[in-house]
Each structure stands twice: as structure tokens, then as C-alpha cells.
């Protein structure tokens, strides 16, 4: 019986695309002084990948670029969502980034702490407790 590798190729493209996007959006949003630059770069990359996907005659390459292209386009939208997480204190702000320094000043919930960096306790945790859990670790 011949194995069909399309599912595996699609799975790996999806996983790598989501993983890369997850890490890259956090990192680039954290260090970039403007949002429009990474948003534009990701949107152009996404469109370019979709164009390759449409025009290539290589079937596997078409699948990889077709999936990666859409994850890049999704990531382009994620930059503003990530900035909103910073404003709400749901992701750590980078005080060395002038844009984040401004957010830290303008939005009281914004923090430099990563409040998600702990194991679950199985019970509701107050904001003060959450800070204690990550700082006294």
C-alpha cells in the first residue's frame, strides 16, 4: 500500500506556521517601535506565499506555501491583538521599547511581568497572588 504524504505535509506546515507565528509575533511586537512595519512585512510575505502557491507546478510546495501564507496573513492581524494584550497586562511589556514604555505609562494594567509563567493551581487566583506566584518563585 502506498502512503499518502499530503496529510503529513499539511500537518507539518500548519504546526510550523502556527508555532513560528506564535513566537515571532510576540518577539517582534515586543521589540518593534512601530506596529505598521511588522504588519506590512507579514502581510506582504503572506500574499507572496499565496502567489507562489497558486503559480507553482510543484504540488507539495503549493501546499506548504498555501498554508504558511494564510498563517502569515493571520499573524499580520495578531500584532494589534498582541498590543492589546500588553495594554491589559495579559502579556509582558518591554520597557526598552518606546511604544511599550508609553503603554506602561498610559494603561495602568500594563506590566513588565509575564503572569502566565507558572503552573495552574486549580483555583481562582487574585492579581496580587498571581504576581506573588511568579516573583517569589
Amino acid at each position: 500500500m502506498e502512503l499518502n504524504s499530503i496529510g503529513l505535509i499539511a500537518a507539518m506546515s500548519t504546526f510550523v506556521g502556527v508555532w513560528f507565528g506564535h513566537v515571532a509575533v510576540r518577539k517582534m511586537e515586543s521589540i518593534s517601535p512601530t506596529l505598521w512595519l511588522p504588519i506590512t512585512a507579514f502581510a506582504i510575505t503572506g500574499i507572496a506565499l499565496e502567489w507562489i502557491s497558486l503559480t507553482t507546478s510543484h504540488f507539495s510546495l503549493s501546499i506548504v506555501t498555501g498554508i504558511l501564507g494564510f498563517t502569515f496573513l493571520w499573524d499580520a492581524l495578531e500584532f494589534t491583538r498582541q498590543q492589546n494584550r500588553i495594554k491589559n497586562g495579559h502579556a509582558p511589556a518591554n520597557p526598552n521599547n518606546p511604544r511599550h514604555a508609553r503603554l506602561l505609562h498610559e494603561y495602568p494594567p500594563a506590566t513588565t511581568l509575564d503572569l502566565l509563567k507558572r503552573d495552574p493551581l486549580g483555583k481562582p487566583v487574585s492579581h496580587r497572588e498571581a504576581i506573588k506566584l511568579i516573583t517569589e518563585h
Partner: peptide
């Protein structure tokens, strides 16, 4: 043009 992967990309987006 091969629209299979483009459609698959949209389906991937929906699944994500």
C-alpha cells in the same frame, strides 16, 4: 493556477 492549496489554506485558517 492551482487553487487546491489556496482553499486548503483557508480551511487551515478556519481550523486554527
Amino acid at each position: 493556477m492551482n487553487f487546491f492549496a489556496l482553499t486548503l489554506g483557508i480551511a487551515t485558517l478556519l481550523m486554527i
